[in-house]
Design a protein around this nucleic acid. Structure first.
Lengths: 357, 357
DNA sequence: CCTTGCGGCGGACACGTGTCCGCGAGAATC
DNA sequence: GATTCTCGCGGACACGTGTCCGCCGCAAGG
């Protein structure tokens, strides 16, 4: 009987699909329990038997059902990652680095984009899969995200928010964006600039507020009035965070009666778009105007002129995030939320220069 | 008794973690089967009871264990996606689009980076989770990937390869890269160019071979000898696909005795890097040399000069991919592999111009 | 030949769920 | 008040696995 099944399987070029340890064991003529022992490295088996099972495992490609295994109490070794989107390069870089780090620890990543509205379903799905933690990367609607965090905490699932600062009760790792903008503004002040144009930094969500805070702090520290020296036409064009928005803004800023001498970009894309916009209008950077970005993406070194910007230190962020996450996995839930701040660094290139006399 | 547990839970600010339908049912004073019926929308229940369960569901955040559910035979509604890396923007865009499309069909995406060597484990893990299909995005080692596909087929798991063309027995969706390069070369030939410089297209893996095929076809069609009119110094610098490699190449190409008049970029990054490199050397684009990219990333419209490149039509690719995938899910395995080719489009901008007389 | 021990067999249970089915309490109907 | 109907209860089974445990065939040692 057993010999028959083996022979039959070997003859047919398309062997039977094996979907359970029982089927697999029958296929190779052993008991289910014996196979299970090999899979779980239990002692008391002949080396010959172990090797026999393992070869068959490799040949057939059989894999034990993870769902059943987890049901028996083994850890799922999965975490859920909620992304604001997959279109923001720095966020994707964080995702990539985090995924790699967790992978090396044997943890798989379930990745979903958290769209406002269906976000609840996404987190519920993670919960139902009994992930060991949920990570949020990016910026989300405050109320919505806090509701998700409450749900997670109630079910005892650890969480971590990367990038978004100031959420109540949230474990957080975020760049100190205010400090980043302080660096930028101080650099420009040192170059003699006293009037600044906004490239998408006014009003809006926390990621912009943080930047404003930094700008204002830097100006006040030198005795300047933020309201008086910042100009914004951000509202003139439909808001987005891409190149084109920056280009349009530059177009609108060029003709201003009291045109600022330096322009502060919300991110590198907008700044690069503005670079193009200013050049299209016949201005030269940094001779006529200075422009700064934020994030220090690779492209910043390749534009003409190369872009002065703020580096995020993604490695630090992700390393810190992983440390927090791994620390939470086995342990009991922490009472106080863990909050870590990452220090930014100014990268001076060619797009900023002294004010022309 | 039952009233007690409810009251106790309501009193303590940290309610008990509910990890099974049984616990949840006890918590709200109902039978497990009743809760199960609500969850699975079975008839024969009073609206009042249904509402009572659903409110408790929302309040406690309880979620039935997906592993147990799948074990009972319900579909997992998950697919596995293997990425070559998360650093190639067009690949990430495909990932994002595909993930979104599948999400809207109720299918979750498990995403892993397939590093050569540990790739086997990744696919095995997908298999053990009984994903409904496995997708590969990017270019992989031929032998390794074909081994993975064989394993998948043997276990009856549908697959799809996006981007990599010509794998034996593989369901494939890929851009016709050869056709893309033909468009580029024809465009340059029309502008009078007869000598071409390689920016990272010589030798190497399939993604480069495809491009070479297209270039050679275009040249031969006009009676030119590819070997005679293509110059390459690709080997002079350590290979990578980023801006810096392009910049270095340009630096080495500038001083050539018989410097070509047009340069063909493997991708946009290398082309943009070359743009910068040529400009640093004092050349003007496109007056002195023409440069082309590949992929049509957003940045191409913002460089100075804006980059002539080939558009991938990612929407087409992903739509086709989703169509194939969704078609495979319920159905029986197809005998013949499905192969679809996506047509590229030339996008002419400012980085290409007529040869100077 | 009998004893001993090794190593594989196979039955049993639990994990959390969906589903079926018989039961019974309470309400509605006559 | 007796009958019928409604609807929730709770026992049972199966899904695939890990683990425990008693059993037994077989070979080695006395």
């Amino acid at each position: 009987m057993r010999a028959d099944t083996v022979a039959a399987a070997k003859k047919s070029s398309r062997p039977v699909v094996l979907r359970s340890t029982a089927e697999f064991a029958r296929h190779i003529g052993l008991a289910r329990t014996t196979v299970s022992r090999v899979l779980n490295q239990q002692p008391g088996l002949r080396p010959k038997t172990i090797e026999r099972v393992q070869r068959a495992l490799a040949e057939t490609g059989f894999t034990p059902n993870a769902h059943a295994v987890h049901l028996k109490g083994k850890r799922t070794a999965m975490i859920g990652i909620c992304m604001e989107d997959l279109a923001t390069p720095p966020a994707v870089r964080k995702l990539a680095a985090l995924q790699r780090l967790l992978r090396s620890r044997g943890i798989a990543s379930l990745i979903e984009v958290y769209t406002p509205g269906v976000g609840r379903d996404v987190v519920r799905h993670f919960q139902s899969l009994r992930v060991e933690a949920v990570v949020f990367i990016g910026h989300f609607l405050r109320d919505e995200i806090e509701a998700r965090l409450t749900e997670l905490t109630r079910q005892g699932t650890p969480h971590l928010v990367i990038d978004q600062f100031g959420l109540k009760g949230a474990n957080t790792v975020a760049l100190d964006r205010a400090a980043g903008m302080e660096l930028v503004v101080n650099h420009l002040l040192d170059l003699g600039h006293r009037s600044f144009g906004s490239l998408g930094i006014t009003k809006g969500p926390p990621s912009r507020i943080d930047r404003q805070t930094g700008i204002q702090a830097a100006l006040r520290a030198r005795g300047l009035d933020p309201a008086a020296c910042i100009v914004s036409v951000d509202h003139l064009h439909e808001r987005s965070n891409d190149f084109e928005y920056g280009r349009l803004l530059a177009g609108s800023l060029v003709g201003l009666a009291e045109r600022p001498t330096a322009f502060l970009g919300y991110n590198d894309e907008i700044a690069i778009g503005a670079l193009r916009g200013f050049q299209e209008a016949g201005l030269r950077v940094p001779r006529d105007v200075s422009v700064t970005g934020f994030n220090n993406q690779e492209i910043c070194g390749m534009t003409s002129p190369a872009l002065t910007t703020v580096d995020q230190s993604i490695e630090d962020t992700v390393a810190t995030a992983a440390e927090i996450l791994l620390g939470q996995l086995g342990a009991a839930p922490t009472a106080k939320p863990i909050v870590r701040t990452i220090a930014p660094a100014l990268v001076v290139r060619e797009s900023t220069g002294p004010v022309r006399a």
